[in-house]
Amino acid sequence: MDKQPEKKGDQTQDNNSSALVQKIQQLGQSNVPQAPDSNIHVLSIIGQVEGHVQLPPQNKTTKYEHLLPQLVAIEQNPKIEGLVILLNTVGGDVEAGLALSEMITSISKPTVSIVLGGGHSIGVPIAVATDYSFIAPTATMTIHPIRLTGLVIGVPQTFEYLDEMQNRVVDFVVNHSNITEEKFKDLMFAKGNLTRDIGTNVVGKAAVEYGLIDGVGGVKEAMKKINELIKQNGDHEQQVMQ
């Protein structure tokens, strides 16, 4: 009778030590760093925004079907007070990009975005969807007309269809930033800025001057802003309760 518990203890010890050996083999260390729970979550949108069609594997992609449930979880979790979105994207699927933008804009918690490197094409509506947007001084945003389509139909219809798709993007950007529709379309159809295309490459400070992005900055500015917004949000909630 006495032997049984002893045996059991040995077994757990064996299991523990084998798990430890496995960990050392895989990671070269036995302990993992611990940090306190963060009240701010981070969503990175990197590479192509992938929509209904799976892109070939050489593309680095962000799949929107992975992000949508996470956004719901962020909205639902009371421990999460704010969301920071990191953008370094070359654009991608229009529907997926707009879906993400609408999800981000409809989150009740404070949201801040940082455009790092590039936030091109469909990255523009995603960047402006947040409560406050930042762009790194060296980051760029390419604003140009929509052209790539999987549809092969008659020329006039294709033109009108693309025009309609484009208007969805333009409307969203105009409604969620300080840029005017006229200015945005000017940038979109500008000649001479891009070598083989019409459009404009807007760099850091210029994006702020056009009213597209709210401020130039990086992590420090974004964290400061989100903490400020969280505080405001908290004050407001307290007022409502009273």
Binding site: Q48, G51, V90, G91, T142, L148, G150, L162, V169, D197
Partner: peptide, 8 residues
């Protein structure tokens, strides 16, 4: 599917 990107 419509892709909006500066890439070719």
């Amino acid at each position: 599917m419509i892709i909006y990107t500066p890439l070719s």
